[in-house]
Deep mutational scan, measured.
Amino acid sequence: MQIFVKTLTGKTITLEVEPSDTIENVKAKIQDKEGIPPDQQRLIFAGKQLEDGRTLSDYNIQKESTSHLVLR
C-alpha cells in the first residue's frame, strides 16, 4: 500500500509499505529515499509519535494515510 510522509519543508514522500511493516522499516525506507538517518527521524501520526518496534497496523495507518516527519 502507499502512504505519504510530509516533511517540515512541505515536501511529500510517497512510500510503498505493508501494514505489517514496523516503524523502523518505514524509517529505513525514508533513509533510502531521502538520506536521513533513522535516528534523526521522528514520525508523527494523528498527533502521536510512532515508536520503532510497533507496526503501521498498530497505529491504524491505512493506505494513503499521511504522517509527518520531524527531524531531531
Rank of each mutant, 00 (worst) to 15 (best):
Q49R: 09
Q41G: 03
Q31L: 09
V70E: 14
R42F: 13
T9I: 07
A28N: 10
V17R: 00
E51W: 05
V17E: 00
E51G: 04
V70S: 05
E51F: 06
D32Q: 14
Y59S: 02
D21W: 10
Y59K: 01
T55A: 06
V70W: 10
K27D: 00
Q31M: 13
Q49W: 14
R42D: 09
G35L: 04
Q49D: 14
T12G: 03
D52K: 04
N60I: 04
E24Q: 12
Q31H: 14
I23S: 01
P37H: 11
Y59D: 01
F4C: 09
G35Y: 03
V5I: 14
S57I: 08
Q62S: 14
E16Q: 11
I30Q: 00
K33V: 12
M1A: 03
L56N: 01
V70M: 11
K63Q: 12
S20P: 02
K11C: 11
K48H: 12
I3G: 00
I30L: 07
L15Y: 01
K33T: 08
L43I: 09
R42C: 15
L43S: 00
P37F: 05
A28I: 14
T14I: 14
T66H: 15
I23N: 00
K48R: 10
L50H: 01
K63C: 08
K27W: 03
L50P: 01
R72M: 15
L69R: 02
K11E: 08
E18S: 14
Q49G: 06
A46D: 14
R72V: 15
E18W: 13
F4I: 11
A28D: 06
H68D: 09
K27S: 01
V5A: 02
V70Y: 12
S20G: 12
E16T: 13
V70T: 07
T12Q: 07
I23E: 00
K33A: 11
K33N: 05
V5L: 05
K63A: 15
I13P: 00
E64Q: 10
T12W: 12
K27M: 07
V5W: 02
R42Y: 12
Y59G: 01
V5K: 00
K33C: 09
N25V: 14
Q41S: 04
I36T: 06
S65W: 07
I44W: 15
F4N: 07
Q62N: 14
Q40D: 08
I61M: 07
N25K: 14
K48S: 08
D32R: 12
D21G: 03
Q40R: 11
T9D: 13
P19V: 07
K11S: 08
Q49V: 15
I44D: 06
V70H: 15
T55E: 03
D58Q: 06
R42M: 15
D21E: 09
I3W: 02
Q41R: 02
G53M: 08
E16G: 06
F45T: 02
P38E: 06
G35D: 05
D21K: 01
G10W: 04
P38I: 15
M1L: 08
S57W: 08
I23C: 01
E24T: 09
T66E: 11
Q31G: 07
I61K: 01
E18T: 14
V17C: 09
R54K: 13
T66N: 10
D39S: 13
N60P: 03
K11M: 09
E16P: 04
P37M: 06
R42I: 15
M1H: 05
I30R: 00
T22S: 08
S57P: 02
G10L: 03
E51M: 11
T12C: 14
S65I: 08
T7A: 05
R72F: 15
A46Q: 15
V26F: 03
D21Q: 04
H68R: 08
A46K: 14
L56S: 00
Q2N: 11
I61G: 01
Q40E: 10
K11T: 08
I13G: 01
D52G: 05
E51L: 10
L50Y: 01
T55V: 06
N25E: 12
S67Y: 13
L69W: 03
M1Y: 14
N60T: 04
A46C: 13
A46L: 13
M1R: 03
Q2D: 06
T12N: 05
L43K: 00
K48W: 06
L69E: 02
V70G: 04
E18P: 03
N25M: 15
Q49Y: 13
I30T: 01
K11R: 11
R42H: 12
G35N: 07
Y59P: 01
